[in-house]
Amino acid sequence: MSTTIGRRAATDSPAPAKKQKQGQGGSIDRQRRKLLMPFVGPAFIFYTVLFIVPAIGAAWISLHVWAGSGPMKFVGLQNYARVFKDDLFLKSFGNTLLLLFVVGAAIFILAFAMTLVLRDMAGKKMVRNVIFFPHLINALVFGVLAGFIFNPGGMVNTLLKPLGITEPPAWLAQENIFPLIMATLVATTTGYFTTILMAGVDRIPPYFYEDCALAGATAFQRLRYVILPLTWDVFGTCAVLWTISSIKIFEIIWVFGGSSGAGIPPTQSWTTAVYTYVTAFSGQSTPAYGAATASAIISLALVSVLVVLLRRAMRRDAVEF
């Protein structure tokens, strides 16, 4: 400590008042700058070595035919061509898009509707706390529970029986699993996005609503001219968040199928994440690392394009208030 004081005292004394202040800020700044290595270094190294390098490695591997051991054969973009001819991948990719857009749209409509109701409802804190909680639970749990609730002797069917439905649909039949997964995801994710939207809506100062009341605006006008414009940026953030997280969906699909039988989920419900995992690690066929990473890179490309588009589209008017 004493050295820094001494040094500053030395620079201070000859300098005129104005310069003194500059020198002061500069010295703190200079000192801070020296901390670049010790402060940012560890984070930078961890992140680069175990995250960015693998990501670049994935792009490299996707250009090769490789079974994990032995020689890598460079094939250029053939893996991508191969993957796009693979029915399994097309199915997985289609499912990922379904999750992204259909489930996403459902979540947003529901979350926004819930936000509007919640905004001025008694007991909103409690409701908000309860609907947020599923976000903290591993999606595996929902997969397992849904498997139980919908199994032939499960809760849904015992509920339907008194209603006269003695032959309920085979919920967990392979062709029904994916719609069921989509429904489960909507049910378990909506709460999280409602909470985020709520945070945005709550930031709107009350006097805007009071203004609306004075001006005699209808509920729809208030929604159109106050609430929507002022929460537009939050919508954008939510859309980006959903895009990123929907691409990663894996666990729930893995056990949704697992609970109904075989170790690997039925191909009808695969997503690109499942496709990548199975192609590389299932142990049932020779691992095709090239195709697996190609599929992952395609999902990364999808995320990047969508995020860029979303940012472009949502940028239009970030209203300051």
């Binding site: 990501a55 994935a58 990663k248 992952a296 990364l300």
Partner: peptide
């Protein structure tokens, strides 16, 4: 960057 990208490398 989704986790499945870095999984294999």
């Amino acid at each position: 960057i989704p986790a499945q990208v870095i999984l294999i490398p």
